[in-house]
Design a protein around this nucleic acid. Sequence first.
DNA 1: GAAAATCTTGACGAAATATTGACCCTTTTT
DNA 2: AAAAAGGGTCAATATTTCGTCAAGATTTTC
Lengths: 216, 216
Amino acid sequence: MFHILIIDDDPYIGDLLEETLKSADYSVSRAFTGTEALEILSKEKPDLILLDLMLPELSGEELLPKIKDIPVIVISAKIDVSNKVDLLLGGAADYVTKPFDMRELLARIAVQLRKNDKNELTFRDLTLYADALTVKVNNTETRLTGTEWAILKLLMQDPLKPVGKSAMLEKISADTPDCTERSLKQHISNIRKKLQSVNGEDYIEAVYGIGFKMKS
Amino acid sequence: MFHILIIDDDPYIGDLLEETLKSADYSVSRAFTGTEALEILSKEKPDLILLDLMLPELSGEELLPKIKDIPVIVISAKIDVSNKVDLLLGGAADYVTKPFDMRELLARIAVQLRKNDKNELTFRDLTLYADALTVKVNNTETRLTGTEWAILKLLMQDPLKPVGKSAMLEKISADTPDCTERSLKQHISNIRKKLQSVNGEDYIEAVYGIGFKMKS
DNA sequence: GAAAATCTTGACGAAATATTGACCCTTTTT
DNA sequence: AAAAAGGGTCAATATTTCGTCAAGATTTTC
């Protein structure tokens, strides 16, 4: 089940949203101020955020840049186009103006969550499965460990772009708190070995001084 | 550069879109009917599709499910919410109603292309990429080392103005603490060599007694 | 609690990158 | 015109990073 954080100081709209989302089978958290939202985000990581711009203390515009890796749908009464453009370019995934139709909002939420939903990731003849901790190389399935899988996923999410070593460590630190650059190197080596054992190819490329990327 | 396919039978709106997109530095293909669109898609794979619903032969609603793995922004005069919802759930990435503001459309396109971070720097036929540590010369990609990239970036940030050697050293000292004017000279030479190996041109010019600038 | 799987760390050769010396050419100064 | 200073490049050396083996530490599984 997907988890959604509603950030809105207006209790009436907030309640309406919460009720609608719950009946659409989402779980919901609530924040009424920007600082409260940050507090919640430090503890839990929702799949999506609904953000009203008019907030006491910390405004929505200030809050948005602080949110990383979670799609944000901005809800606002402001119909000003330049404001809308700024927010979209500033990281918002979508922008809905009040008053909005609840069915449309639900559809736009579904669009954002659809991206997270695909539990397969492919690159050349590699397929990474989300639920099984495995990769298929050339139709041969190979088992990976948890961290190996997490690392390969990071690389395959954006195969063209090198991923920095420190960025990797940060993102996999949840499962392996004391993974260092030293051990990361070893994990990469182990992934290579497992993939190579199938058809002898090396799929990973080092970018000197930066990190790693998929070999294109 | 990103490539966008416009599917619209109205030549006036299509021309307007094409012109706007081109001036925003996208490359553009055009289709005027649904079948024509499918024909184009069998040959090329754009990064994004703008789809008008009112099409002769094959309607936009029928065309949408046939498009796979490419984000589609639907443009339509239909403001009917249930129609909007159906399309969004049916695979559309976004939905914009006519009449629309061109700046907003551009922002929504940028969101789909995740072009939020401007990590490109161009000068003549050079393009410097921030995340990959590469330059494209005449569409041929060449890899640079970290310091080479940092130096070229400084020069390309404003190509007309010469950059002093001491200023360069200061700004790249984070990565290479013991780079001197002596080694800087060598790095410049190495950059030249890499760029020249593509089409024989020298892009860097020395300013006697000061430093370096891009050759204009 | 023993065995197995996984994670981390030390060591060392290989590869990529950075720095330096030598030498010649060009520009500026005297 | 000669001297001095800056610029350009080759080649050698130094330094940093990468890749892997093997061993020890930790966690998971039975």
